[in-house]
Simulated scan of single mutants.
Amino acid sequence: MPPLPTATPPTVALGPEAAVTPKPDAISASAWALLAVLSLIWGTSFILMKKGLVVFSALELGACRVSVAALLLLPFAVGEARRIQPGRVKWLALSGTVGTLIPAFLFAYAETRLASGLAGVLNALTAVFALLMGAWLFGQRLTGARVLGIALGLAGTVVLMLLGGSGEATGPRGAGNAWYGLYIVAATLGYGLSVNVIKHRLHGLRPVAVTSLLLAIIGGPALAFLLLGTGFVHKLATVPGAWAAFGYIALLATMSTAVATLLFNKLLQQSTTLFASSSTYLIPIVALGWGALDGEAFNLWHGLGMVVILAGVWVIHRAK
């Protein structure tokens, strides 16, 4: 799963943009190592969701994921709350809702019927929708090359959903369920809006402030719903394998938010934004690899759809 965005100006990739962008020849071996670790963390998010859904429902998984992440970063939120301007709270709430809370549920719903590897591929659409939302709501310029990138990304999505199937031949994620990919399309649309809200309305705030505060805002309702509106606690106490499933969800929340966000910001200090955004291309490969190890199918149409989507993302990144 992509990281929670930060308040520094983001690219249309899955992560935030740094203020410091060294020359390409300044990229160090440690930066390459960070890129590999980050791609592994985010690419693994999708198989972790799949494992959590073995016991818990999509609603339970989404609420638990947000709750754990919010509790983990609560100490930072307490420290940052004293420095936040009141007028920015509404933008934090908007970004947290459309970029974290709702996608947590949408991805979980999608993976009840869609293979985790394909979910990782569709996640690359974040780049497409970040550009579209920036142009629609914030006046970002759309060049011919950027329009081409958007078209390629959407075309690859159509190929995956119409011709590729769900990624598994049998079981709950069998053929005929590929339309559950629309949940991920909706989630990446939310990511696209969120990164633009942060770029244009929350600029100047430290990444840890944005991440911890928006999680604090949405974490309370998520935790209340988890404990009072679902059977999460009962399952945890009575269902065999529930603690293992909870462990997968807790690992998902911890690694894909707190740890990955810190590592990504460190990477941005050591490299260029273009280099850091290369994770966009590596995440689907990792996600598909985990899916293959878990017995998920991968056919020619899946490969074609992935190539077309990533080609669109590449065009968007390179476009002036």
Rank of each mutant, 00 (worst) to 15 (best):
F56A: 06
F56D: 03
L59D: 15
E60A: 10
A63N: 04
C64W: 13
R65S: 03
R65L: 01
S67N: 11
V68N: 01
V68E: 00
L73E: 04
L74C: 02
P75Q: 06
P75E: 09
P75M: 07
E80M: 06
A81N: 00
R82P: 00
I84G: 08
V89H: 07
W91L: 06
W91M: 09
A93P: 04
V98G: 07
G99H: 10
L101N: 00
A104E: 00
F105K: 07
L106Y: 02
A110K: 05
A110D: 06
L114F: 03
A119H: 07
G120N: 08
V121P: 02
V121D: 07
L122F: 05
N123T: 14
A127Y: 01
V128Y: 00
F129W: 12
L131E: 09
L132F: 11
G134F: 00
G134Q: 05
G134E: 04
A135R: 08
G139R: 01
Q140Y: 11
R141G: 09
L142F: 03
T143R: 15
T143P: 05
G144M: 06
A145D: 12
R146M: 13
V147M: 14
L148S: 13
L148Y: 08
L148G: 10
G149A: 02
I150S: 01
G153R: 00
A155T: 15
L160G: 01
M161G: 01
L163E: 11
G164R: 06
G164K: 05
S166T: 08
G171P: 06
G171L: 09
P172L: 13
P172E: 15
